[in-house]
């Protein structure tokens, strides 16, 4: 059948124009700006070579934010996925209320990062302090004014927000494991424990790959929660990468430097994404 070229371009045009204008052209411009002294005020941006990149690798706030974000991603990845998988195992059992629980565990995910950040700010500053005072557990007091507990505050918020999301992904996978496989293992005398380790977990691998990388990627890109919970405080100690870039641009007006940081950020995030794609593709073939 003959299909007209006009139709192809006509139907593609609206999406392609919006995409080019909003994503493609700014991305290309961004690579140029990263090598200039652009400050957003003067008309011209002058080419400065790799100066911005040299500057950012001497910028203690950036290096700290990088390390902080990586460490955060590591902790979040482990906790979110362990909790998410445990929740999925629990709610796929047959007991009254299992469906309602699914709904509850997933709910935090729909609430925006800003609202979550402010809500947990209340929990850490008011509720934790009150519990700490009432029970004599003084370590619960002043969480967000201390870099270490501020870090764990962000981790707790993230676990609360994302583990329900991972649960949904893991439930979908658990339900795909065929009853016949489980039945065969049961006949062979597998108990609940060895069933989990030898049957369920290996068959869960594709979902684990997705879950792990989604959490890493989300952790690296986190902004709203960071802004609303700690705003990077105290003294930029809990500032993550995205917020560091934002502050470079809007608090310090170093747009060229912020853009150079954003390029490094792009490379890291894209590398994570590409690794995920390759791994999931390979897994699919094996299945």
């Amino acid at each position: 059948m003959q299909k007209s070229k006009t139709r192809f371009w006509l139907f593609l045009a609206p999406a392609l124009i919006a995409f080019a204008l909003i994503v493609l052209i700014p991305t290309i411009m961004g690579f140029w700006y990263a090598f200039t002294d652009w400050n957003g005020i003067s008309e011209r941006a002058n080419f400065v070579g790799v100066r911005n990149f040299v500057t950012i690798f001497q910028d203690q706030t950036f290096l700290h934010a990088f390390g902080f974000t990586a460490l955060f991603a590591l902790c979040a990845v482990v906790l979110v996925n362990v909790v998410g998988f445990a929740l999925a195992l629990l709610v796929t059992q047959a007991f009254p209320g299992a469906t309602a629980l699914r709904g509850i565990f997933f709910m935090p995910n729909l609430i925006g990062g800003l609202l979550l950040g402010f809500t947990w700010q209340f929990i850490f500053t008011s509720i934790f302090t009150a519990i700490g005072k009432a029970t004599g557990m003084h370590f619960l007091i002043g969480w967000l004014s201390n870099p270490q507990t501020g870090f764990w505050g962000l981790v707790i918020l993230t676990v609360w927000q994302l583990s329900g999301y991972m649960m949904i992904i893991y439930i979908a996978q658990i339900q795909q494991i065929q009853e016949s496989v489980k039945e065969a293992a049961r006949i062979d005398g597998a108990g609940a424990g060895s069933m989990l380790v030898h049957i369920t977990m290996p068959l869960m691998m594709p979902a684990f790959t997705i879950g792990l990388f989604m959490t890493i990627s989300n952790s690296f890109k986190m902004f709203d929660q960071n802004l609303a919970l700690t705003a990077g405080g105290p003294y930029r100690a809990t500032e993550m990468l995205a917020l560091n870039i934002y502050n470079s641009a809007f608090a310090e007006n170093h747009l060229g430097i912020a853009q150079a940081k954003a390029i490094i950020f792009l490379i890291v995030v894209a590398a994570i994404g590409i690794t995920q794609l390759t791994l999931t593709k390979r897994k699919e073939v094996e299945m």
């Binding site: 392609l16 909003i22 493609l24 991305t27 990468l241 853009q259 994404g273």
Partner: peptide, 24 residues
């Protein structure tokens, strides 16, 4: 090629586009 372009753009974080987008 165009489909690949759309797919590849999924990897670009917002912070990377944010400043030039404001110029545009």
């Amino acid at each position: 090629v165009i489909f690949l372009l759309f797919a590849a753009a999924m990897l670009i974080p917002f912070q990377c586009v944010m400043l030039p987008l404001m110029s545009v």
